Computed example of a mutant assay.
Amino acid sequence: MADILSGATPREWPRLMWELYEPVHDIVYFAPQARQAADEAGMRGFWMGYFGMRAAPLGPVGPAVVTSCFYVFHPDRVARAVPDAWRYASPCDLLAARERAVDGAMRQLFGDQVVTGPQIAEAADLAWQAAMAADTAGRVLGAANQAIERPAQPHIRLWQALTTLREHRGDGHIAVLVGHGIGPLAALVLKAAAGESDGTALREGRKWDPGAWQATEAELRARGRLDAHGRLTAAGAAEHVRIEDETDAAAARPWQALGKDATERLGELLRPLAEQVAGSGLIPADNPVGLTGTRLGGTPGAAPDRLP
């Protein structure tokens, strides 16, 4: 773990820990067990399963709420899945389905011996402590996940805690984007321009049409954020750095509460899990999250479904 957390300052902890817990959280999008569990719960297709299981902690909310919380999806993408999802399965049913999916995926990826071992239990308790310390005022997805009852099985508890931390960070990131005047589509265009994800995959996955994407590129060029080739200008790159720094700062509370030694220990326990996911090929190289696997030494490959 020395090459990731050793010598890192508290200011760097949120970014470094995100790189370790995000791959473990993301199995709920990419693992085949997730699609199977969603189908068994009555969902009609990948997207309904995605929106239903991710939004389930919010209760049976309508498409406007989900669009707002998830931020970067075209409203039409959401409206094709919500509220119809609640006709086929209740949020409680879908919470149970995602736990089944995570259980099956973690057992397949890590093995029963690891899943039931003492290190997973230790990681679960540390992650749960961090997640319960997250400040969720104004952070709807983080708060909804934080309110979920503590799972009895350690590996499910670990995944739920990491999911709370992930959604807490995402809520903070959205707040930063809003503060910078960057709307949903502009956020995607800038993410692609920064080289974090493939622009076509971002646009198609979130159901934005090419004309809207091009219009947003033109707007960002007029604001001096993109050059004529669709790359970040110096001003755009500087703003990108500020956004990332502010996102990290907004995600610091859990790690400040956990403290240096416990944060480093959790990182040590998460690293082999993150490396296993990164090296499994489960997460595609062009994933919209921006995970590359390079820091962990993995090489994400193709997967049947892309994270929306």
Rank of each mutant, 00 (worst) to 15 (best):
A2F: 05
E12W: 08
E12G: 11
W13T: 09
Y21K: 11
Y29N: 14
Q33R: 03
R35M: 12
Q36W: 02
G42A: 08
G42P: 11
G42M: 12
M43E: 11
F46L: 10
F46A: 05
M53S: 08
A56I: 11
G59K: 12
P60N: 12
V72C: 10
P75N: 11
V78P: 03
P83M: 06
A85V: 15
A85H: 06
S90T: 15
P91T: 13
Q113H: 12
V114S: 08
P118K: 08
Q119F: 07
Q119N: 13
Q119L: 13
A124C: 09
A131R: 05
M132S: 02
G138L: 09
V140Q: 04
L141A: 07
A143M: 02
N145W: 00
N145R: 03
I148M: 14
P151G: 08
Q153N: 08
H155D: 13
A161I: 09
R166M: 05
R169E: 01
R169I: 07
G170A: 09
L177M: 15
H180F: 15
H180I: 07
L188W: 03
A194K: 04
G195F: 07
E196M: 13
D198V: 07
T200K: 07
G205E: 00
A212D: 12
T216K: 00
R223A: 01
R225D: 00
L226T: 03
D227K: 01
A228K: 06
A238K: 08
I243E: 02
D248C: 13
D248G: 06
A249P: 05
A251Y: 00
A252K: 01
W255P: 02
A262R: 15
R265E: 06
G267A: 11
L270K: 09
R271A: 09
L273I: 10
A274E: 11
E275M: 11
G279I: 08
L282M: 15
L282I: 11
P288D: 02
P288G: 06
L291T: 04
L296E: 00
L296N: 01
G298H: 02
P300I: 06
P304L: 14
